[in-house]
Design a protein around this nucleic acid. Structure first.
Length: 499
RNA sequence: CGGGAUGUAGCGCAGUCUGGUUAGCGCACCUGACUGGGGGUCAGGGGGUCGCCGGUUCGAAUCCGGCCAUCCCGACCA
């Protein structure tokens, strides 16, 4: 990650001065979606670049969004019987290497600690890229009997994966996430847990972030290193590229064997536990930006908006004595109703400037109040998504605001869903497939023979990858042929260019 | 890690080719006044180791060498 590209915009010196100057400081989406994304993240003060390569600072406004996402997820994770714990950041190198596929998958991305206390370490430590190794080690100590199962632990943590190409929220060297790690008595229970969490993710992300997601299973080549099966939720961004928004892994007994996590079963035999792990990350914030944002900036779903309403008092005459006290009363009454509200009473900016600024920051509802409104016992509400201006009586204001917030939440989801539907194409023609993947692609649903060769060839030729394989009725066999090789198909697959 | 490009104020850039006063411009920032219902106007002001190290020269942002960083494009990833 790095300073924003320098050659993107023409020099201000080349432009006419004054009124013709571009005012938003945000590159239009249509001109350069990546630049637009970076501009929004920085101008909305979600995050900033740090002096450490690939690492970003999550600023208070961005972190507040993360906290709301956390709360929504944490509540659901606990409601389904899980408990939180915390495992260490450092993992002895030897532990990571116990599971062969796991170490092979993560070795290139691991950061090592070689010195501590001024001395070279006997055994190098790795900075966790994920915590299967350390948690598995502990589970081996804690689990003796079938009566100890299931173990359902989640942790909120930071992890480090050395990345070559980084982008704020979407891919950074260090990121925040939650990782659940469970151990079960039977394979069926592990599978049930894996799928239960996938649904939990889908529900949370759709109802709180208003981001529609596709659930399904990852192909062999895209699954988690060391897992039996990986399931994912996939979302479509505004530029037609897919983003993996969360994963849930059925680890089988792979880690149990590697870390010797055994229990005595009901039939007195000694068995390995069946494991799962699952996580979502701060990448979700990137998804929210790219799914809902527009050329005016960020657009936040009310449920995760740090401020659901911003009050802008209109300064006229001695407004500090007339308008401001009324605005404060309104703020208090909205707060009492449980609405997250802020007031921008800065004297140094004009109302017009504030309107643009808070739209850029994605606040769902703006409340304007000036002398004219006070005379008529009303306020002016303005929706971020439609920019509709709604004169609203002060009487019953809080209830009306709550209604509008719910409408905005629903509308954002519907708009995103419609966009995804419009950018999802079913095809059996590889020519059409290739054509769709040019420009602003989207999802393509096609049949696949299941061979890794076809998967790789498609990626080479179109940059598209299998995002996941949707769930289907096992009773319904697939008839048709692979989009690439024409052999009998064994899977339906969602393809897309991915982040 | 391979190919291409760029490092000058918080951001975006000019100046470098052709070495020479005190390194400029727009935005942002600070002070004041007038303003204020969609990014106001005027006046004044602050802010720079010119990526780093070394060399050439009376003199280096500018020329030479090395290093570092970042961005874009190709192989890996939540």
């Amino acid at each position: 990650m790095a300073p924003v590209s320098r050659d993107r915009r023409p020099s201000m010196n080349d432009k006419p001065e004054g009124k013709d100057r571009q005012v938003t400081e945000i590159t239009p989406q249509s001109e350069d979606f990546s630049a637009w994304y970076i501009d929004v993240v920085r101008r909305a003060e979600l995050a900033d670049y740090s002096p450490v390569k690939g690492c970003m600072v999550i600023r208070p406004y961005g972190y507040a969004i993360w906290e709301l996402i956390q709360q929504a997820l944490d509540r659901r994770i606990k409601e389904t019987g899980h408990v939180n714990a915390y495992f260490p950041l450092f993992i002895p190198e030897g532990l990571l290497t116990k599971e062969a596929e796991h170490v092979e998958g993560f070795a290139p991305q691991v950061a090592y600690v070689t010195h501590g206390g001024g001395e070279k370490l006997e055994e190098r430590l790795i900075v966790r890229p994920t915590s299967e190794a350390i948690i598995g080690t502990m589970y081996a100590k804690w689990i003796q009997s079938w009566r100890d199962l299931p173990v359902l632990i989640n942790q909120w943590a930071n992890v480090v994966r050395w990345e070559k190409v980084t982008r704020p929220f979407l891919r950074t060297t260090e990121f925040l996430w939650q990782e659940g790690h469970t151990a079960h008595e039977t394979e069926a229970q592990a599978e049930e847990e894996t799928l239960k969490i996938l649904d939990l993710y889908k529900d949370t992300i759709e109802s709180e972030l208003a981001v529609p997601v596709l659930t399904g299973r990852k192909s062999e080549s895209e699954k988690f290193a060391g897992a039996l099966r990986t399931y994912s939720i996939e979302a479509l961004m505004g530029d037609g590229r897919a983003l993996q928004a969360g994963t849930s892994h059925n680890l089988g007994q792979n880690f149990a064997r590697a870390f010797d996590i055994t229990f005595q079963a009901r039939d007195k035999s000694l068995q390995h536990v069946w494991g799962t792990s699952w996580g979502v990350t701060t990448r979700l914030i990137g998804a929210v930006v790219m799914v809902h944002g527009d050329d005016n900036g960020l657009m936040l779903p009310p449920r995760i908006a740090p401020y659901q309403v911003v009050i802008v008092p209109i300064p006229r005459g001695n407004w500090q004595q007339t308008v401001l006290p009324r605005a404060r009363e309104l703020r208090a009454s909205l707060q009492t109703a449980g609405i997250r509200v802020t007031m921008d009473d800065r004297d140094t900016y004009t109302p017009g400037w504030k309107f643009a600024e808070w739209e850029l920051r994605g606040v769902p509802l703006r409340l304007e109040i000036g002398p004219r409104d006070i005379e008529q016992s009303q306020v002016m509400l303005v929706r971020r998504d439609t920019r509709e201006k709604l004169p609203t009586p002060v009487e019953g204001l809080a209830r009306r605001v709550e209604e509008l917030l719910a409408m905005i939440q629903a509308s954002l989801f519907e708009t995103a869903l419609r966009f995804r539907d419009e950018h999802t194409t079913r095809t059996d023609s590889y020519e059409e497939f290739k054509r769709i993947m040019e420009g602003r692609p989207g999802f393509v649903v096609s049949l696949w023979c299941g061979s890794q060769k076809c998967e790789t060839d498609i990626k080479t030729e179109t940059q598209a990858t299998i995002r996941n394989l949707p769930f289907r009725d096992p009773g319904q066999p697939i008839s048709g042929s692979c989009i690439k090789c024409g052999q009998p198909a064994r899977e339906v697959a969602y393809f897309a260019k991915a982040y």
